[in-house]
Write a protein that binds this DNA or RNA. Structure first.
Length: 725
DNA sequence: TTAGGGTTAG
């Protein structure tokens, strides 16, 4: 769009006697309406020409609203005559509210050198600037100056000090100032409470609310809004309910802020029923409350409900779009996340870095490499290519799209790396079964002085587990506890149980489950159960499956495991009971689903799927593939199928697994491609694994399959997992 | 019209 020009260009014939620059009020108007930085500079030229130097101060204020003009503004500051105190303070306030409040102190130093007036009104905005930029040392400096000038007993200054110390995390110093105050109003109380809220010190918050009762100040809706927002952030439903109770008790008027804060608190704490009830009473709804509902539903795993609310938001803003994009990115429908993202672009709302993090994460989940590459280019175009969190996400994305080399390239090109970068890379090696590099990078990061955190250890243990390195895993676990002082979490125990289980050390696995300091969850029992299936330990497996069902009565895997186990042992009564229960509850084995990306589109195949428009060719190709690999030694392995089908049925059930269909489609459409990439929702079965290995040799293709937990790179008849998975 | 406090994602 063309930028509006000045009414009369500075190079025109406008002089002191004619045109818009003749009168001072015209300057004032021009300064306030200047739309571009060059326009402002033109006005500057005219001001100097006509010697209206007292207008330079207005010009200075105005120049602050243009980005990247700090040097210019500072030079203006050196030239302006000393203003009245109110104007001087206006400048400080302006600076403190800018996007880069830290510059306030550069300007303030110049102002002091030029002997600009400083009075008690100067201090609150100066302290605000320190808070906003978390600049404790600047804040202390201002505190010192306030004391020197005798303003540190002004209630406004004191409140600002409480705010500054609170924001900078020095809560006891904030409290010290607070306690010494002779007069506290509701804002002071709120500022102190906010400090405690930021640190999640809710006991202090509740105590302070209690103290307020014996003070002159009554808690108002703003205080409650502050607390509710903090409760929402950390998911503290208990205190949130207490606050809700107090609001009702005091019959406070619930304005839209407070109403939205209540909705947000309940939604963030997962209490969607209450949130919904409040939301339905909110009239008119507002974008904040609606966005809170979108996030709440998404987090609760109910993206459909989130979408219904999202669709009704009239003027969607960056936050609401991003909430929906993030909701889908973490759901089972990451493709929808990308579609919404494109809608957002079309609607003209500009994504920010955080939106892009969700989009990258959606790509990672989707595993679609071409999409991923396009998003990477887009992120670079948007200027986010150097941002650390973006690069960390890109590492994860490429790794999960099966392109380990690209992940490593991103990592190598990063000028700054943090623990997340290293951890992402270690986890990348882990899911690709490259335990040596996972270990190398782990040692390398330590040499670089980057301290591993609990997530790093999950990655390293995961790598050990996938490679069956029991002793190494044990050593890493001990290192974590003894040398890094990290208390093992459920995730670490999960890795260890998996490690022992897969390595057929089921007794060790069970012992760990029974002695770990917290209650094992479904994943842990499920992992033990899976290990028992692999190693044919049906008695222990039955025990584990029953523990799984205690925690999740509708767990499909446990029911299937029990049913198969009972059938193997010819306990037909038990088989019938399990089947009956599953039928009654509508539980069935999760249907296998594989996707393959072709010509920029994602093609999805379910087990025995016949809905694809090239179904006939795909099944023909399947017959052809089976013929060819049989000559290379392929023998169908039906051990993963429900055991009471007859052998023919079993053969077909295995033959039509979704990854085989996706592979055949890849063969048909990607003749020239040397690599076929498939994403599968479940673990790959023995038969498909063998099928892929042999196909990689017979058709001379690299086949990359991502299953629920790891990658299989099949080439020349071998798999990177070395058949251990 | 010279100063201090509130809501949404990651």
């Amino acid at each position: 769009m063309a930028q509006s020009l000045l009414p009369v260009p500075a190079t025109s014939s406008a002089t002191a006697s004619s045109g818009p620059f003749r009168h001072q009020h015209n300057y004032a108007h021009l300064i306030s309406t200047a739309a571009t930085f060059p326009q402002l500079k033109q006005i500057h030229t005219q001001i100097l020409k006509h010697q209206h130097h007292h207008l330079l101060f207005h010009l200075l204020l105005s120049s602050l609203s243009f980005p990247c003009s700090n040097t210019y503004s500072l030079s203006l500051l050196s030239a302006v005559p000393t203003p009245a105190p109110n104007l001087s303070n206006k400048l400080i306030k302006h600076l403190s509210r800018s996007n880069d409040p830290l510059i306030t102190f550069f300007f303030f130093r110049t102002m002091q050198n030029k002997a600009f007036p400083v009075d008690r009104y100067s201090f609150p905005p100066l302290l605000k600037a320190a808070s906003k930029s978390m600049a404790l040392s600047e804040g202390k400096m201002i505190h010192g100056l306030a004391s020197k000038m005798g303003f540190d007993f002004d209630p406004f200054v004191e409140t600002a000090l409480v705010g500054m110390y609170g924001t900078c995390g020095h809560i006891s110093e904030a409290r010290l100032v607070f306690d010494k105050m002779s007069y506290r109003d509701v804002v002071t109380w709120n500022t102190m409470i906010e400090g405690y809220c930021q640190l999640g010190l809710f006991d202090n918050v509740v105590a302070l609310l209690e103290d307020m009762k014996s003070s002159d100040a009554e808690p108002d809706e703003r205080i409650y809004t502050t607390i509710l927002s903090a409760c929402a952030r950390v998911g503290n439903l208990d205190v949130g309910k207490i606050v809700h109770g107090l609001i009702d008790e005091h019959k406070l008027v619930i304005d839209s802020y407070l109403h939205s804060a209540l909705i947000n608190m309940y939604a963030s704490c997962g209490a969607m029923d209450v949130a919904r009830c409040l939301y339905d009473k909110l009239n008119p709804v507002n974008i904040v409350a609606s966005t809170a509902m979108v996030s709440g539903y998404s987090e609760a795993g109910n993206v459909e409900a989130a979408r219904l609310i999202f669709d009704k938001i009239i003027d969607k803003d960056l936050v609401s779009w991003s909430a929906m994009i993030s909701g889908y990115a973490e759901s089972d429908a990451p493709g929808e996340s990308l579609r919404i993202f494109h809608d957002m672009i079309k609607s003209g709302v500009k994504p920010d870095q955080v939106t892009m993090l969700s989009v990258i994460s959606a790509c990672a989940r989707l595993g679609a490499l071409d999409q991923a590459k396009r998003i990477h280019l887009l992120v670079d175009d948007m200027g986010f290519g150097k941002a650390l969190p973006i690069n960390n996400a890109l590492i994860d994305m490429y790794a999960k799209c099966g392109y380990l080399l690209a992940a490593k390239e991103v990592f190598d090109r990063m000028s700054r790396k943090n623990v997340i970068s290293w951890t992402s890379m270690i986890s990348a090696f882990a899911i690709h079964g490259d335990v040596d590099d996972a270990m190398n990078y782990f040692n390398h990061m330590k040499r670089e002085g980057v301290e591993p955190n609990w997530v790093t250890f999950v990655g390293v243990l995961y790598a050990c587990s996938h490679a069956g390195l029991v002793e190494d895993g044990r050593k890493v676990f001990e290192l974590m506890v003894n040398e890094y002082g990290i208390t093992p979490k459920l995730e670490h125990y999960g890795c260890m149980v998996d490690l022992y289980g897969r390595a057929n050390r089921l007794r060790d696995a069970l012992e760990l489950v029974e002695t770990m300091p917290m209650a094992p969850n479904v994943i842990i029992w499920g992992s033990l159960m899976a290990a028992c299936r692999i190693h044919g330990e049906f008695e222990l497996g039955e025990f584990a499956a029953k523990r799984v069902l205690e925690l999740d009565p509708e767990h499909d895997g446990a029911h299937v495991f029990l049913s198969n186990t009972y059938a193997k042992e010819k306990r037909w009564g038990d088989v019938g009971e399990v089947r009956q229960f599953m039928k009654h509850k509508g539980i069935s084995k999760e249907r296998g689903c594989s996707t393959i990306e072709m010509d920029g589109r994602i093609h999805e195949f379910l087990t025995a799927d016949k809905s694809h428009k090239e179904t006939v060719q795909i099944y023909d190709k399947l017959d052809e593939v089976v013929d060819k690999i049989k000559r290379a030694g392929y023998v169908p392995n039906t051990s993963c199928v429900m055991v009471d089908l007859d052998e023919d049925e079993k053969g077909e059930a295995v033959l039509w697994h979704s990854e085989k269909l996706a592979f055949c489609y890849g063969l048909i459409r990607g003749e020239r491609d040397s690599c076929i990439r498939i994403i599968k929702n479940l673990r790959i079965c023995q038969d498909c694994h063998n099928f892929m290995k042999l196909s990689s040799k017979v058709f001379d293709k690299e086949i990359v399959v991502r299953d629920r937990t790891r990658f299989h790179h099949c080439k020349d008849g071998q798999c990177s997992c070395r058949d251990y998975w």
